[in-house]
Design a protein around this nucleic acid. Structure first.
Lengths: 216, 216
DNA sequence: GTCAACAATCGTGTATACAAGAATAGCATT
DNA sequence: AATGCTATTCTTGTATACACGATTGTTGAC
């Protein structure tokens, strides 16, 4: 448990939303949550205010909080922004790469290779996350890294769904290879271009997303 | 006043921070704020939680809330991300431009021209804001628009300082012209490139920023 | 005179109480 | 039977009370 109940509840409820335990559109009753977690309504309300500020739920005055349903189109838009931010991170990483970042990227990249070779989609899911985080960090921009991490977190469930698509695993890893090459070569523009393509959802990948979202 | 005191307080305190009424590093005492606004501590706390989630203040458990001091380097990073997001908005606008957006951009652009010609830096400050907002809207991506507006809001005070720099007004307007041309010509890549340059803080503009921040 | 330990005070964190608006169900009227 | 009005209930919004940790000031020892 975190140092105060409010933050703990925020993380707890956030995870419940991201793991689809609370479905989009569902109403979050303060009293129910309070008894469920064995606390009073006060910290529950504080957690909800924060989630509202982040954009995970919507608090309609006097009418309670509901989990926001992004819908395929908005998720697409979020991936579009994510692609742009990751592209920037990649281009910065290419320019500013130092030894530690280079090793971190190499290490996570190697782990991705293993998971991809093994066809282990769950393992790849985690390793892929670490790989991308290594690139955020290599960009050496604290603000950008924070923005990337936050958006990455919100997109986590959809990312997971995407990996289930046929061949996506090996395709993804091949793209990683090219990205690593560009960054290590110091080619910021190429790294940016490749990352935009890697993260964004173009063409048939959008219908894959819609299908997987509908399947839940 | 908004529909509930918490939101009203959030906006009120947010404005006070952005207008530098509460200086960076300053401690925000819940009781003081409560008496100052004539309410109890409960809505004050809720407002503070939201501001913490947005990133304007930091709440250290059991040790109160302080206004975050971005510092020149972090402000630079924020402009860097802003430039990237605006670049995306511009490229989308170039591709998706419709009649209404075109007219909105033209109208705000014309107002910028007048303020720039008059050398009225305060008027230009407002018109410039509307111009950029018109581009966000023209991109037709709700999520991107929200992100742009949020970051734009946080950077507002620094943007204002920047306009005070010699010749910045006319330079800025000339850049606007090129941006409008690129968007109207449907050249997304060029619009992106120009907006990145227009918004980002390269070269001597960084030292201008540092100087103006120190001058406060 | 400086530093450390202890006590008092102050401020935050949580719970509970109360007020007020929104949803709902029941009754009456058409 | 359907619709509209009213009363009740339920939930949110705000205030207040209480508990606990942090900060600070004072006193004593070296």
């Amino acid at each position: 448990m975190s140092e105060n109940v409010g933050r703990w509840l925020r993380d707890e409820i956030e995870n419940s939303i991201l793991s689809n335990e609370f479905s989009p559109g569902e109403r979050l009753d303060e009293t129910v949550l309070a008894t469920r977690f064995g606390v009073s309504r006060t910290p529950v309300r504080e957690a909800l205010m924060q989630l509202d500020a982040i954009g995970l739920i919507e608090i309609r005055p006097r009418r309670g909080a509901i989990v926001i349903d992004p819908g395929p189109h908005r998720v697409y838009e979020m991936f579009e922004v994510m692609a742009e931010l990751e592209g920037l991170a990649g281009s910065l990483a290419a320019r500013r790469l130092d030894k530690a970042s280079r090793e971190a990227i190499n290490a996570t990249h190697a782990r991705c290779e293993q998971s991809a070779a093994a066809g282990d989609s769950d393992a790849y899911y985690y390793d892929n996350e670490e790989f991308h985080k290594a690139i955020y960090a290599a960009g050496r921009s604290d603000f950008l890294e924070e923005q990337c991490l936050q958006l990455h977190r919100r997109l986590r469930p959809y990312r997971r769904l995407q990996l289930r698509v046929r061949n996506r695993l090996s395709t993804s890893f091949l793209e990683h290879c090219a990205i690593v090459d560009a960054i290590f070569a110091g080619d910021g523009d190429e790294a940016r271009r490749l990352l935009r393509g890697h993260v964004g959802i173009q063409g048939e990948r959008f219908s894959d997303l819609v299908a997987s979202m509908a399947a839940r």
